[in-house]
Simulated assay, not measured.
Amino acid sequence: MADSNLFTVLPGGKKYPLLGLGTWQSESGKVRHAVETAIACGYRHIDAAYAYANEKEVGDAIKAKIDDGTIKREDIFVTTKLWITETHPGRIEPCCRESLQNLGLDYADLYLIHYPVSLVNDKGSFPLGEDGMLIGDDSIDYIDVWKGMESLVDKGLVRAIGVSNFNTSQMQRILDLPPKHPVANLQVECHPLLAQNELIELCKKHGITVTAYSPLGSPERPGDKSTEPVLMEDPVVCAIAKKRGVSSAQVLIRYQLQRGVVVVPKSVTPSRIQQNFEALHFELSKEEMQELIDLNRDHRLLDFPMGKRLKYYPFGNQN
């Protein structure tokens, strides 16, 4: 497949591989092998985060593949994220530096604000009140967090910055600043049931790349899933997969690739990591793409329920 189909381009010209390996919920003791396997398969994009608590294993895997000559540092694109307990102006740079130390890197290719909300920073990474809801720090505005992120670019700690889980109005508020450094990327939940058309159009208008997390419907997500749709068992997805002789996961990955959306499926199983990578090697027809597009019902599977009372909660009306 042509090089232009494997990459999108960030503001400034940096190539951003369209397919990456996600590491959310990748089990300790398994994620290093998963990342090493992915790099050996040909992946050149790893999506990490401070909050995933596995950056050290991710970094060990990258180092191992550099040391064995499979890749050079410049060959691999690494994204990580600022967690929402670390958004106070005095904590942004230390959090970034801690992530870089964990990853064994001098810089991150892309650094994202994980959510537009902020939490108190003296009660652990997930501070909960007696009601089971997260305890917010309403004194922090994500606009000020963005300005702190911009200083990381100035200091060479990160090459590009972006946001995750922001809605259209929150995106527009940053764009209206205007930002000193461009918003390079928006990472959001995205799959055929939640197509994110409005956000994607906004991003296209402003030259912002979009990354889809949970592209397979996040079957291992926390919470009660008994009444929720199972995306990889959807009849339309399964029919296309059967016709093509591929997996449902490959169909869902390919759907994003053909939309020009970066996609970061998670797996720690070597055979699935390889199989997911092979989604680069076939194309869906216009008719098949339309069938998948028609599945959209703006149905969110991960609505961050513990954060619904937080200022700047991005997913609808606060409760």
Rank of each mutant, 00 (worst) to 15 (best):
G59R: 03
E288Y: 14
I113T: 03
H88M: 13
P229R: 12
V237Q: 10
A239H: 12
R32V: 01
P11R: 00
I293Y: 14
P127C: 09
H45F: 02
L177E: 10
W24I: 04
E189D: 05
R44K: 13
P219E: 04
G69M: 09
I161L: 07
K30W: 07
G136A: 09
L6A: 08
D67V: 09
R44L: 02
M232Q: 11
F304V: 08
K147A: 10
P314E: 02
N5R: 07
K63M: 02
G29P: 11
G245S: 15
G207P: 08
V210A: 05
F282P: 11
D224M: 05
A160R: 02
H33D: 15
I71A: 09
Y213F: 15
P222R: 14
N167A: 02
D122E: 09
S247G: 12
L134C: 09
V264T: 14
A160W: 02
E233G: 01
P265D: 10
L193K: 11
R309A: 12
F277H: 13
C41I: 10
K56F: 00
N296T: 04
Q258D: 06
S271M: 09
S247F: 12
G13I: 04
K308C: 05
S118N: 10
N319M: 02
R254T: 11
I208L: 01
I92P: 03
R91T: 00
G59F: 06
S214E: 11
P192R: 08
I113E: 00
R309C: 06
S248D: 10
P229D: 01
S226A: 04
I240A: 15
E220D: 15
L257S: 07
R300Y: 01
A184H: 01
V268F: 13
K15N: 04
G22D: 05
P229Y: 09
V183P: 00
R254V: 06
G12N: 00
Y213H: 09
Y213Q: 07
G124S: 14
A195D: 10
I113Q: 05
V263Y: 07
Q170V: 04
Q290E: 10
D67L: 11
P116C: 04
C95D: 07
E291C: 07
E93K: 15
P222N: 12
N296L: 13
A239R: 12
L175S: 03
V9C: 05
N121E: 10
I140V: 13
A279Y: 13
L194V: 01
Q25W: 13
E189L: 11
Q25L: 13
Q25G: 08
W146A: 03
H114W: 04
V251D: 10
S139D: 05
D75E: 06
A53P: 03
P265I: 11
R73T: 02
I253D: 08
T85D: 06
D137E: 13
K204R: 15
K242H: 14
D122Q: 11
Q196T: 00
L100F: 06
R91I: 04
R173N: 03
C190M: 15
L199T: 10
I39P: 04
S214C: 14
P265E: 11
A108R: 01
Y312V: 00
V183Y: 03
W146Q: 02
P215K: 11
